[in-house]
């Protein structure tokens, strides 16, 4: 039989805590498994939480840890968006590409069939938006079919450098669903110099031309810029330029350069510091699109069933947040 003093200690120690505070109780060596179960049952019954058991000591939180999803904006909740890297090859070789795309990169295409299955399963799993990225998706000969499979199920965003809108690729664009698709074009500056320094000569001029083509074809265009963190203080000239292009302020996305892929500097990102945005590539399911070419952010090699991958990401997110909260409780410096 377990030691009843264990529960008496639990009641006394948690009773003295503020909500959210943690305490520890030692478990006996002989009946440790039963006592762990008893602590878990007691916590469940009294609205508390067993944080964990380590080296024969149970850590208990008074009250339950806050719901980490409740603190997020609705579109940030993991499983709300699904990113799909359609391919990794690209007509550009940007010097900060987070997934090492370039003309020499292997295609590693997910393929139209799997994209269609992902769109189906995503819709069934409660995903509300699909985001297709690469590489440069317009290098794929069947991109229009692939996009159609997505827009048939969910509102979709397609990331592109907008440099290939001519000939057969322009015809593919023209076949896409204007009401269900947003084009997100990469553009880093109001003038060519900075953009071209990272992305290649004349890339700014061709991207701006591409934005105008897409708009003329009736598509909503969003612009996303990747900037060094120190440039965040000088955004207004860039925003003013985007205004002249007719890009709504809400469609002007500015993100910080991440130290990932071939980037030599930028924000250091970890599983703990990123709110996950579930990302599928030909190689597996990843924590976030910024790290979709890095095994440290690989969630699973299994793309299907997609719901399992979503559940796993959500489970890990809760675990990481609980661990961070507990660490904050354990490590006051003063």
């Amino acid at each position: 039989m377990v030691n009843p003093l264990l529960v008496l200690d639990l009641v006394e120690r948690t009773g003295a805590l503020p909500v959210g505070g943690t305490t520890t109780v030692p478990l006996g060596e002989v009946a440790r498994e039963h006592e762990t179960e008893l602590v878990a049952l007691w916590c469940e019954r009294n609205g508390n939480e067993l944080v964990g058991v380590r080296d024969g000591v149970a850590t208990v939180r008074r009250g339950r840890s806050p719901d980490p999803f409740a603190e997020l904006a609705p579109d940030q909740v993991p499983g709300t968006r699904l990113w799909i890297y359609t391919n990794f090859d690209c007509n550009l070789a940007c010097d900060y590409c987070c997934v090492r795309s370039s003309p020499q990169a292997a295609r590693r295409a997910v393929g139209a069939d799997k994209v269609a299955q992902l769109a189906d399963e995503a819709a069934d799993a409660g995903v509300s938006e699909l985001i297709l990225t690469g590489g440069e998706p317009f290098l794929l000969p069947d991109l229009d079919d692939l996009v159609a499979a997505c827009t048939a199920r969910l509102p979709t965003t397609l990331l592109t450098n907008a440099m290939l809108f001519r000939g057969r690729r322009l015809q593919m664009l023209q076949r896409m669903h204007r009401d269900r698709l947003v084009l997100q074009v990469s553009l880093d500056s109001a003038t060519p110099e900075l953009h071209d320094r990272h992305r290649g000569a004349r890339s700014w001029e061709r991207a701006v031309a591409g934005i105008r083509i897409a708009q003329a074809e009736g598509f909503r265009v969003r612009v996303a810029a990747t900037l060094e963190p120190e440039r965040f203080t000088e955004l207004e000239p860039f925003r003013a330029f985007l205004d002249t292009l007719g890009i709504a302020r809400g469609d002007q996305v500015i993100r910080a350069l991440a130290h990932r892929g071939v980037a030599e500097s930028g924000l250091e990102l970890t599983l703990e510091s990123l709110i996950p945005e579930i990302t599928v590539t030909a190689d597996g399911v990843y924590w976030h699109p910024v790290s979709a070419d890095h095994d440290d952010h690989l969630v699973t090699r299994e793309l299907f069933p997609l719901r399992d991958a979503i559940d796993e990401v959500r489970r890990r997110f809760v675990e990481i947040r609980a661990r961070a909260d507990a660490a904050a409780q354990w490590f006051p410096c003063a």
């Binding site: 039989m1 009843p4 009641v11």
Partner: peptide
């Protein structure tokens, strides 16, 4: 309230 807090006689049958 204390009896409830320790789980009555349901959490540790055989104790109290």
């Amino acid at each position: 309230n204390t009896w409830e807090a320790i789980g009555r006689d349901e959490l540790m049958p055989g104790a109290f």
